[in-house]
Design a protein around this nucleic acid. Structure first.
Lengths: 247, 247
DNA sequence: CTATGATTAAAACGAACGTATGAATTATAG
DNA sequence: CTATAATTCATACGTTCGTTTTAATCATAG
């Protein structure tokens, strides 16, 4: 049972595939691109993973297994320390999105490459990929969803689910499309450095997410206004509704 | 110069291509899928558009030309009515994102199909697509960016650009991935109908975007706290910083 | 060392891809 | 009606795709 070179081969394929899938998408990345860049034989992918689809799934599973466990672990710890009391929304948001974003610093867990891949893949057209990702996420998302329900008892559950959706979108776009808007605008970076990206992106994004999560509830045409009532929710009735303004 | 049937052919190709590109992505949609569903000859695309890339660009240009003009028109009207005074952030956000979202109701402008396509394409891996989209968006984004700078003079410009980025992400994900999270969670829709999507999505998303845009500024490790000072910004110093909580 | 199973290598498979060609068909102009 | 340009059509080209096959190479156990 020889397993010396094969481990390296497997890992090298996964690393290259991760990077190429990130840059060119699933359909846009060919087996020959992967195997030639990884300096392995063309048949190696099918030998080690069975098919291109299975390779893609393994690329994600390698990272998501850890991420899911870490997210669960963080939430368990938080709830244990809270001793039955509801968590603070910021704790929950940080447990879910902060844990994800901190992977950027951990090159061993894929770093920014995997983050960008994940961000782009959430809106990937390929059917089997979205199905696979949804299945991988299901349990963890449900747990965090429930935590948010408990943390925000006055907010309709449907509203929380929607805002979770919005937070996911803002995050995945932030980690995926760092180039898109950069080309569009002059980017207006007055600040000194520009490669520090992540350590400044995280607080920026967190602030945005929490602002959105805790924003006054929308008012529909028919329904009566449902406004946050809990003390400290910063939201006042004065600026509730979709037309919240600064003056 | 016969142009009777060709117009129908062109439009039919564009309509089918728009729908298929939305569902399967650019690489995942073949010429044969398009031409067979559109009931035209395989060579029709190359005859009318030259190439697959040109077809893709025409699919977008057909919708974006109108969207860009409308966004410009709305902003011009707002600024004319404001008579030099700064606009309200909600007006600017609604002008940019509301105008986009309202395309969903206009089947003549592509409706939800184009919206979902646009949302997914912003993170599309194909190089030429992102370049093309960035070029199409540049002028309008710059104008709205400037409007936000003027509306929020106390907020650092870099911060505004980031939050614009985040808003774009939340929006594109909201209109693109309506299925992704639906599979993950039980979706917790307590409300009656579920097909009304857009007319309830718009105020929901708007509320979220404004909450994020007007959220207290993040505090970095080194820098001093920069907190919104303008009256009515709802944000109090007590819950400024990345760890904003409800209690 | 030899036998055995795991891995790598080179080559080929059929299918699907985007595109191009030239003839047939259709519509319009004079 | 005839001539001419625009469009549609059937078909084929050359490439690239993911996968498979068969043989060669490697590492380890007995």
């Amino acid at each position: 049972m020889a397993e010396v070179k094969s481990v390296d081969t497997r890992e090298r394929i996964l690393d290259v595939a991760e990077r190429l899938f990130m840059g060119h998408g699933y359909d846009g990345t060919s087996m020959r691109m992967i195997t030639s860049e990884a300096a392995v034989n063309l048949a190696a992918v099918n030998y080690h993973f069975g098919s291109k689809e299975s390779l893609m799934q393994e690329v994600f599973r390698r990272r998501l297994d850890w991420l899911n466990e870490e997210r669960m672990r963080v939430l368990n710890t938080l709830e244990r320390e809270a001793a039955g009391k509801a968590l603070k929304p910021s704790q929950i948001v940080d447990g879910f999105f902060g844990t994800l974003l901190r992977m950027a610093d951990d090159e061993k867990r894929g770093g920014t490459t995997f983050l960008r891949l994940l961000g782009r893949t959430l809106t990937d057209p390929s059917e089997f990929i979205r199905t696979f990702l949804a299945h991988e996420y299901a349990a963890v998302v449900d747990r965090y969803k429930e935590a948010l329900f408990k943390a925000l008892p006055d907010v309709p559950k449907a509203e929380i689910v929607w805002r979770f959706h919005f937070m996911l979108g803002a995050t995945s776009y932030a980690i995926a499309g760092t180039d898109a808007l950069r080309l569009v605008t002059d980017w207006q970076i007055e600040e000194s450095d520009s490669i520090d990206r992540m350590d400044r992106l995280v607080p920026r994004l967190m602030s945005f997410l929490l602002g959105g999560l805790r924003s006054p509830l929308p008012q529909f045409s028919d329904a009566a206004a449902t406004v946050e009532t809990k003390a400290g929710h910063t939201t006042t009735a004065a600026n509730a509704g979709p037309a919240v303004d600064s003056k």
